[in-house]
């Protein structure tokens, strides 16, 4: 809300009539939105202070810090944090690099190929749950096309249990997310490339700059802002990513692809530990808020 306090007849701090009117008209929607957004948040934080297990309604008790202390000692929680960081880091960096390469490659193509951008966007618009199922079958130990291709090219001898190996499963979900998210970066970078003034590029050619020099000294500086903003946006998105991971592995095998949101889900809806799940959720909200602050600052920054 950007309602400003204005001076009214020399009396400082008083609201103008139009500001008051605006505030009153906005108030009902703010009230409704506040209830929708704040109530669940406050309720979750409140729940985090309780020993609250859905299957034990007779055993609900206020414990204040017990859930938070448990979190500090909970190996699985820290493993989930580690998995989230690995998953996000690799997904964002690889998607970003691929997205930029694709955008530059398409930018070089003649105009009649401009429709290709729309075609490449398809993975981005496919719902996460569908992407999850697609890749689950592609990586299936018995009928998966990935194993089939790798065996055809004699890279592997036996079919690999991609989704049932603690190391391979993380690689599989990262690949699925890269496929899903790269078009988004490509779209953003394509828009950025279009904004580079032609005369700057031409000046570089006239000065005899190589393609690499042109990229490094002209293209990339123009794309820096997009790199920062999209990366932060996708870090937030991947910190919260749920459907593809849940569909492909459910967080398994064991906890090898359990990210923080999957862990919260497993605690809340497989083990019904609402109190502890709320505590993990509350901590995760704080982490996301911190990343969001960086994102908002990046938006305001002039790159």
């Amino acid at each position: 809300m950007s309602t400003k306090l204005t001076k009214n007849n020399g009396r400082e701090g008083r609201w103008s009539a139009s500001s008051k009117l605006a505030a009153m008209l906005i108030a009902p929607s703010l009230l409704v939105m506040g209830m929708i957004i704040l109530y669940p948040l406050i309720h979750a934080v409140w729940l985090s202070f309780f020993n609250y297990k859905l299957t034990r309604p007779d055993d609900i008790a206020f414990t204040l810090t017990k859930n938070y202390l448990r979190m500090v000692q909970d190996e699985t929680f820290w493993l989930a944090v580690k998995n989230t960081l690995i998953f996000t880091l690799f997904t964002v960096i690889i998607s970003l690099v691929l997205g930029m390469i694709m955008a530059i490659a398409i930018d070089q193509l003649p105009k009649r190929f401009s429709g290709l951008r729309g075609f490449i966007l398809v993975p981005w618009v496919v719902p996460g749950i569908v992407v999850g199922y697609l890749f689950m079958y592609m990586f299936d130990v018995e009928v998966g096309v990935v194993n089939f291709i790798l065996q055809k090219f004699q890279i592997i001898q036996e079919f690999l249990p991609w989704l049932m190996n603690d190391k391979l499963s993380m690689i599989a979900i990262i690949i699925a997310h890269i496929w899903n998210q790269t078009p988004f970066y490509m779209l953003m970078f394509s828009a950025g490339l279009m904004a580079i003034p032609e005369d700057v590029k031409e000046a570089a050619y006239v000065e005899g700059a190589s393609r690499w020099q042109e990229f490094w000294h002209i293209t990339f500086p123009y794309l820096k802002g997009i790199v920062a903003i999209t990366s932060l946006l996708m870090v937030i998105r991947n910190f919260n990513n749920f459907p593809i991971i849940f569909t492909m592995t459910g967080g398994g095998p064991v906890y090898s692809t359990t990210t923080s949101v999957i862990y919260i889900y497993r605690l809340a809806f497989e083990q019904y530990e609402m109190g502890y799940a709320s505590a993990v959720g509350a901590v995760w909200v704080i982490v996301l808020l911190i990343v969001s602050i960086f994102y908002i600052k990046a938006l305001q920054k002039d790159f």
Binding site: P161, M164, N165, D166, G252, P253, V254, S256
Partner: peptide
């Protein structure tokens, strides 16, 4: 069952 999965996946 998480333990049993650990047996077969690690």
């Amino acid at each position: 069952m998480a333990g049993m999965q650990e047996v077969i996946t690690t």
